[in-house]
C-alpha cells in the first residue's frame, strides 16, 4: 500500500512540485496545508504516515507545527523542508523530533531517498 503524505508549504508552487515528485514515486498525497495551523488540523483529520514540513510559514511556523504534531502522535514522522541558511531552525526541528530534513531546491531522487528512509 502506498504511503499517505501530508505536504505543508506556504507556496503553491512548492506544494505542486513536491506533490508531483511524490506521486510519480508511488506516494499518496492525502492533504496539503499552507501554514502550520492548518497542518496541525489536517494531521489530526488525516493521520498521514508522513509529513513534509516547510520551516518558514505564516500563522504558525514549521517548527512549532512539528512540536504540535508531536504532541498529537509521539512517533509522527515529519521531514523538514528548509532553504539554505536555516541551519539553526533545522537543528531546533531535529531537537524537537524531526526525522530528517531536505534542502531546497528539491531534487526528486534525494527527496524520495529521504522519505523512504524516514518511513522505514
Amino acid at each position: 500500500m502506498s504511503k499517505r503524505v501530508l505536504i505543508v508549504d506556504d507556496a503553491i508552487f512548492m506544494r505542486m512540485k513536491l506533490k508531483d515528485i511524490l506521486e510519480k514515486n508511488g506516494f499518496e498525497v492525502v492533504a496539503e496545508a499552507q501554514n502550520g495551523q492548518e497542518a496541525v488540523e489536517k494531521y489530526k483529520a488525516e493521520k498521514p504516515d508522513l509529513v513534509t514540513m516547510d520551516i518558514t510559514m505564516p500563522e504558525m511556523d514549521g517548527v512549532s507545527a512539528l512540536k504540535e504534531i508531536k504532541k498529537i502522535k509521539e512517533d509522527a514522522k515529519v521531514v523538514m523542508c528548509s532553504a539554505m541558511g536555516q541551519q539553526a531552525m533545522v537543528m531546533e526541528a531535529i531537537q524537537a523530533g524531526a526525522v530528517d530534513f531536505i534542502v531546497k531546491p528539491f531534487e526528486s531522487e534525494r527527496v524520495i531517498q529521504s522519505l523512504n528512509k524516514a518511513i522505514r
Binding site: 528548509s82 539554505m84 531535529i94 531537537q95 530534513f101
Partner: peptide
C-alpha cells in the same frame, strides 16, 4: 558530495 547544510546533517546524526 551533494549534501547541503552539512552542519545540520551532522547534528541529525549526532542527535
Amino acid at each position: 558530495d551533494y549534501c547541503l547544510l552539512k552542519g545540520a546533517r551532522a547534528y541529525l546524526i549526532l542527535n
